[in-house]
C-alpha cells in the first residue's frame, strides 16, 4: 500500500514538506507542485532528508509546468520532472493521495 504525497508550499517558509518527509516510507512518492517546487532546488532546506529518502528508494517528482513557470530548471537537483498526465498516472499507481498544503 503506497501513498502519493503532494506538497504545494515552499519549504523556505512552511513546514509542509518537512512534515511530509517524516511520514514517507516504503513505496510512497512525493510530488512537488505550485510553490512546493522550490523544495526541489539544490538549496532546499529539506535537501538532506530528501536525499536520504531518495537513497531509500522514495521517488521525488516535480511538476514540470510549475517548475518551468518559476524558472527553476537550473536549480532543481535529483528530482524527476512529470507533466499533468504523469501526475494522473502517479495518482493511479498509488493507493491514496495525501495533500500537504
Amino acid at each position: 500500500m503506497s501513498t502519493l504525497h503532494t506538497v504545494n508550499k515552499s519549504p523556505f517558509e512552511n513546514n509542509s514538506l518537512t512534515s511530509c518527509l517524516q511520514l514517507c516510507s516504503g513505496e510512497d512518492s512525493i510530488l512537488l507542485i505550485e510553490d512546493g517546487t522550490y523544495g526541489g532546488c539544490e538549496s532546499s532546506p529539506c535537501r538532506e532528508p530528501l536525499t536520504r529518502l531518495m537513497e531509500d528508494g522514495i521517488n521525488v517528482y516535480v511538476l514540470e509546468n510549475d517548475a518551468s513557470a518559476r524558472g527553476l530548471h537550473t536549480f532543481l537537483q535529483g528530482v524527476e520532472l512529470v507533466d499533468y498526465p504523469g501526475f494522473v498516472k502517479l495518482s493511479c499507481t498509488h493507493q491514496c493521495i495525501q495533500s500537504w498544503y
Partner: peptide, 18 residues
C-alpha cells in the same frame, strides 16, 4: 493556485479516459 492545478489535473484525467 489550487483551482488551476485541479483544472489541469482534471483535463489530464479525462484525456486518459478516467
Amino acid at each position: 493556485l489550487s483551482s488551476r492545478s485541479a483544472l489541469e489535473f482534471c483535463h489530464a484525467l479525462l484525456e486518459q479516459n478516467h
